[in-house]
């Protein structure tokens, strides 16, 4: 959570400074607890994870090195996306980390498909899949089709819904008309729970239980986390549409602060420990950014410009 927050703050400042980051920066501030609590339940190399926009914390918890994040934001050829795609649109599918596209809800069926293939091949064992979405993304047809199919196929998939109150600027009153998104779980014939997503301990408990149910053959599990996005949709957005009443409400608690207080109150960490941890994390982030900054940018003359893996089927350029 802390590493995610510090890394994203660095990406935000690089964005505001201009020049280094082309394109946008999309932060998960306020969602780290909910995201990481899922990520830590997953085992890289065994489970399939389809994270979304605000899952930097979950990706770290799953095992993505932060250098993949930085390289993708800076478009470095050394990164997993090699300058061909950027920012949050990254992954290593062969390691079970699916690379999201921008079309919300469309990763759900892809993660389900990976599980389906494993079941056919007899290699599913106790592996599970997990994917994230926000309140806005639940309005898409792809989300419905994917979740319904996963339920019909009884696949072990966790669907984590961060109800962060806003889809870009649109409040969730314009997104759905049921009382609580979790009410939909019954309609799909799957289990669903809600959790206070500002509270790491609650999130950990909920995701631990849900992943255990899925691993034990309980089928899809929906977890709806209530929180408030503590940033704009992207760093270009000042989120001025969020009224003060919301900003001062219970959903606006900073999950990182809550988690730190929790650890301090229990005597697990002192303020000095937290300061030291903070400094160590900052050094790690700064060193990573500095390393990646020296790496080569993609060269259009070295790019092969081939969208097919079968090179013999790539057409020549038919230009005048």
């Amino acid at each position: 959570m802390l590493l995610s927050r510090v890394l994203e703050e660095k990406l935000g400042s690089l964005y505001r400074a201009g020049g280094r980051i082309v394109g946008g920066v999309y932060l998960g501030k306020g969602q780290e607890a909910f995201s990481a609590a899922l990520g830590v339940q997953l085992r890289k190399g065994k489970d399939i994870y389809g994270p979304l926009i605000r899952d930097q914390a979950g990706r770290i918890a799953f095992g993505e090195p932060i250098i993949d994040t930085v390289r993708t934001y800076l478009g470095a050829v050394t990164g997993p996306m090699r300058g061909r795609d950027g920012n949050i649109h990254r992954g290593r599918p062969k390691e079970g980390h699916m690379a999201m596209i921008s079309h919300l809800g469309s990763l759900l069926s892809v993660v389900a498909g990976g599980l389906f293939a494993r079941r056919l091949a007899g290699t599913l064992a106790d592996s599970i899949g997990a994917t994230s979405i926000g309140d806005g993304g639940t309005s898409t047809g792809a989300f419905h089709e994917g979740l319904n199919m996963a339920a019909v196929e009884k696949l072990p998939i966790i669907v984590s819904i961060a109800n962060n109150q806003y889809a870009y600027s649109t409040p969730n009153t314009r997104q759905y008309a049921c009382e609580n998104l979790v009410d939909r779980a019954a309609g799909y014939g799957i289990e669903g729970v809600t959790v206070d997503a500002t509270d790491l301990a609650s999130c950990l408990k909920a995701f631990r239980a849900a992943t255990a149910r899925a691993r034990a053959g309980g089928g899809p599990q929906m977890i709806v986390g209530t929180l408030l996005r503590l940033a704009g949709h992207g760093e270009h957005d000042d989120a001025s549409y969020i009224p003060d009443t919301k900003r001062q409400g219970p959903s606006a608690r900073d999950c990182l602060q809550v988690a730190e207080d929790f650890a301090r109150d229990r005597g697990w960490m002192s303020s000095a420990d937290l300061r030291e941890l903070n400094e160590e994390v900052r050094r790690n982030v700064d060193q990573t950014v500095s390393k990646v900054s020296k790496e080569p940018a993609p060269d259009p003359f070295k790019e092969n410009w081939q969208a097919l893996s079968c090179a013999e089927l790539v057409e020549g350029q038919h230009e005048a």
Binding site: G113, F116, L120, A121, A142, N148
Partner: peptide
């Protein structure tokens, strides 16, 4: 199910798995 979007999505995920 009558879900062309999910049918293709599931095929893509399955293909990644071999």
């Amino acid at each position: 199910p009558i879900s062309e979007d999910a049918m293709v999505g599931m095929a893509i995920g399955a293909a990644v798995e071999g």
